[in-house]
Each structure stands twice: as structure tokens, then as C-alpha cells.
């Protein structure tokens, strides 16, 4: 029997490959330069990078970012005291609360932060700070509705049967809204309301917030639930502006408690090797310049009172925000998640 000729893998090739592997492994960097801030971010780089670049230009402090949508709390937890991360940038009260529960962040006592950020939008022990505000709006078809105002409570009204669109009830933005309903009306009342909203849905919950406004344009539904900044994103996108122009943006509950508001926020990690720089960045983000940039570029509302929103955002009008604290909303999130399952909202 003759064996086929053998060319590979020779030991030489194999060892070369192993060297390549070794070289590759050590190339993962863990540089700790003097002037830098390390950030774990739930926010997409393209949203925050321009602001971080401005910070670097002004202070000479470099920023390093890892962007991930999940697992940040777990990573911080196991990295423990050796974690290279200084800050977590994230959206939604749910994610912020997760950091509190994982016990990976520390409180910051800064006059600048305390002055710039109203109590309602930071945790009561200053563990996290809201940086921008986003309203949970109702979008209404210009063609097929003639309302100027609405309350979240109205969404369960039978007059809207088969006319409402929303993304999954499980999405964190909807969970926060439902949690705020529980805080105001109690669980039983909210369950009834949620069932009513489900009965009014035009289609199974799907897509993101913009897809709901698009559905208004297409005539699939007449009302949609969506965050405020998406209106700006759509209006400034060549292909999507017609979706936005088919709908009015309504700020709910203006005649009583005000519209539900959520935040994007920041927190200082317990390990924070570059604590001083990190606090500088936190303060920078709460100051007028960064606040304006958030509003100009991402169409979010500044958290700092007195900072004017961008021209486009301001053009949607003044609104009254619900004063319920985010800490309070966080308390009811779990009930909200279970309620969504119970009424089979997404089913």
C-alpha cells in the first residue's frame, strides 16, 4: 500500500502558525496611558464619537470605547477591581438600574453635575446621571386623525381599534412607559389599559420606533408610539422625511401630569483607574456645549435646564414632562415586564 505524498501540515508550518497565533494573542492591548478615559458604552459610536472628540480636543484626554448592547454589567462585575473601564454610557433607566444592582458603579459628588442635572434625572444617591432626555411620544396621522393632544390612557379607548402601531411591548422604552403607568395607576388598572391597547393594535408589535411612523405613512395605522428624537432623525433623512411628514408629533398628557420622559445617562465604575479624568468627562457631558451637541446631532432634549434644544427639536413646541422620578419608574419595571407577558402583548 502506498501512502499519498505528504506535504502538509509539516511541523515547520505548524510551528509557524503557532507563532502567528501567539503574536495575535498578545496584540490585544491593555494600554494604560496617562491621560485617558475608558468607556463601556451601550450607545452606538456614531452617536457619541463627535462629542468625545470635542472633549479630547479641549482637554487632551483621550477616550477609548467598547460598544456593546448587553453584557456590560457582567463584564464589569467579573473584572472587579482590576477593570480598566472608568465610565458606562448607556440609555434607558433599565440599563442604569442594572448597573446599580450589579454593584459596579460609585457615586460622584460634583457640584457641576448636581447643578446641571435636576434631581429627577439622576439617582438619589448620585450613582448615575441622566445626560439627555427623550419623550415617549404619540405620532398621529395628519391625514386620518384630527387630534392636537392625547393621553397615554386614551390609547386603550375603543375609538382607536385597529389603528395603533408600536414596537414590542418588551422593548425597554415601552417597559419604562408601562412602569410609569403602574406607578401612577397601580398594576390592576395598568393591566386593563394594556389589554385595551393590545386590542387596538393594527398589527403584531414589530420593528423599531421609526418603522411605526412609516406604518402611518403606509396607511397601516393612524397612531404610533415612538421616542421624540426619531422624528428628527427621520425629518433629516432624505428617504424617511416623508414618513415623518405624514404624522404629527404629540406630547401626551399635557393637560395633567405631563409626558413620560426617559434618559440616556452615565455612571462612574467602582474600579475607575482614571477617576479624575472620568469625572471631568462626566461634567463636560453635562455642560452646555455637549448638551447642545446632543440636541443638534441626536435630536435629544438637553437635561440641563436653560440649554436650548436644537432649532428642529424646539420647533416641535414646548412640553410638560411627567415629574415622576426615574428611580420610581425603575421600581416598577419588573412588574411591567411580567404584565406584558400576562396580557400577551406581543402575541
Amino acid at each position: 500500500m502506498k501512502f499519498p505524498s505528504l506535504k502538509r501540515p509539516s511541523l515547520k508550518r505548524l510551528s509557524t502558525s503557532l507563532l502567528v497565533v501567539a503574536a495575535g494573542l498578545t496584540s490585544g492591548q491593555q494600554a494604560v496611558a496617562a491621560d485617558e478615559v475608558n468607556i463601556y458604552s451601550n450607545r452606538q459610536p456614531f452617536l457619541i464619537q463627535p462629542i468625545l472628540d470635542t472633549f479630547t480636543r479641549k482637554t487632551g484626554i483621550e477616550t477609548n470605547v467598547v460598544f456593546a448592547k448587553s453584557g456590560v454589567a457582567e463584564r464589569l462585575k467579573t473584572e472587579g477591581a482590576n477593570s480598566p473601564a472608568d465610565l458606562v454610557l448607556t440609555v434607558d433607566i433599565g440599563r442604569l438600574q442594572e448597573l446599580v444592582e450589579a454593584d459596579v458603579i460609585q457615586s460622584v459628588n460634583s457640584d457641576i453635575l448636581n447643578n446641571n442635572i435636576p434631581q429627577q434625572f439622576r439617582s438619589k444617591d448620585n450613582l448615575w446621571f441622566g445626560l439627555t432626555l427623550r419623550v415617549r411620544n404619540v405620532y398621529a396621522s395628519k391625514e386620518r386623525t384630527d387630534i392636537n393632544g392625547i393621553a397615554y390612557e386614551d390609547l386603550s379607548n375603543p375609538e382607536w381599534k385597529g389603528r395603533i402601531c408600536t414596537r414590542s411591548g418588551k422593548h425597554q422604552y415601552n417597559i419604562a412607559l408601562i412602569a410609569s403607568m403602574i406607578a401612577h395607576h397601580g398594576e390592576a388598572e395598568t393591566e386593563k389599559w394594556l389589554k385595551g391597547v393590545k386590542a387596538n393594535l393594527a398589527q403584531k408589535p414589530q420593528g423599531n420606533d421609526r418603522a411605526q411612523v412609516k406604518a402611518i405613512k403606509e396607511g397601516i395605522c393612524d397612531l404610533a408610539i415612538g421616542n421624540s428624537y426619531y422624528y428628527g432623525v427621520m425629518l433629516t433623512d432624505e428617504n424617511q422625511s416623508e414618513w415623518a411628514r405624514s404624522a404629527n408629533i404629540l406630547f401626551p398628557n399635557q393637560s395633567n401630569r405631563g409626558a413620560h420622559v426617559n434618559v440616556s445617562g452615565v455612571a462612574l465604575t467602582k474600579a475607575a483607574p482614571n477617576k479624575a479624568n472620568a469625572i471631568k468627562l462626566m461634567e463636560f457631558l453635562s455642560e452646555e456645549l455637549a448638551q447642545r451637541m446632543y440636541s443638534e446631532q441626536n435630536f435629544e432634549y438637553p437635561v440641563k435646564p436653560g440649554v436650548k434644544a436644537s432649532g428642529l427639536v424646539s420647533s416641535w413646541g414646548e412640553f410638560k414632562a411627567d415629574t415622576l422620578s426615574l428611580d420610581e419608574i425603575a421600581k416598577h419595571r419588573e412588574q411591567a415586564v411580567k404584565l406584558v407577558d400576562k396580557v400577551d402583548f406581543d402575541g
Binding site: 490585544g28 492591548q29 491593555q30 475608558n38 452606538q44 459610536p45 456614531f46 477609548n64 470605547v65 467598547v66 460598544f67 456593546a68 448592547k69 448587553s70 453584557g71 456590560v72 457582567e74 463584564r75 480598566p84
Partner: peptide
């Protein structure tokens, strides 16, 4: 996404942000 070093993008992670 979850495990990478700072400032380390692959094509997949870059796509993902959009």
C-alpha cells in the same frame, strides 16, 4: 461585541451599530 478590547472594531461590530 462583549469581549473585545477598547477601540477594537471588526466589520461585524461596525455594521451592528447601524
Amino acid at each position: 461585541l462583549i469581549l473585545r478590547p477598547f477601540n477594537f472594531e471588526t466589520l461585524a461590530t461596525f455594521v451592528y451599530q447601524y
